[in-house]
């Protein structure tokens, strides 16, 4: 095999369907939060859960969601 042919074959393994689905889900969550802040900044000041306002709850929720999704992904892809 020539150098050029070898180069042509160095294509990346595609990202998994599960990974792309999880990415899509997170985009919805993140995009939804940013849209909410942009469109209804007054709404995120509400405190629907009693103590903590929606802005903080969403922020902490997004961080925890990222960690959770990544762990689920690792478990689902174990051994591959």
């Amino acid at each position: 095999m020539t150098e050029g042919e070898a180069r042509g074959q160095r294509t990346a393994a595609p990202a998994s369907r599960l990974g792309l689905a999880m990415f899509g889900l997170y985009v919805l969550l993140y995009g939804g939060f940013i849209t909410l802040v942009l469109v209804r900044p007054d709404l995120v000041a509400e405190r629907p859960f009693g103590g903590v306002n929606l802005a903080i709850a969403c922020g902490l929720g997004l961080i925890l969601a990222a960690v959770l999704l990544s762990v689920v992904y690792m478990v689902a892809r174990a051994g591959r």
Binding site: G19, F23, Y26, Y30, G59, L62, A66, Y73
Partner: peptide
Amino acid sequence: GYDGFLYSIGFLAGWVVALFVIAEPIKAL
């Protein structure tokens, strides 16, 4: 106040792109 935390949220969210889209393919490249 809270706006600093928006950086935290955004910085971490970027890792979702890294894990689900970039990590495995780029290792192979």
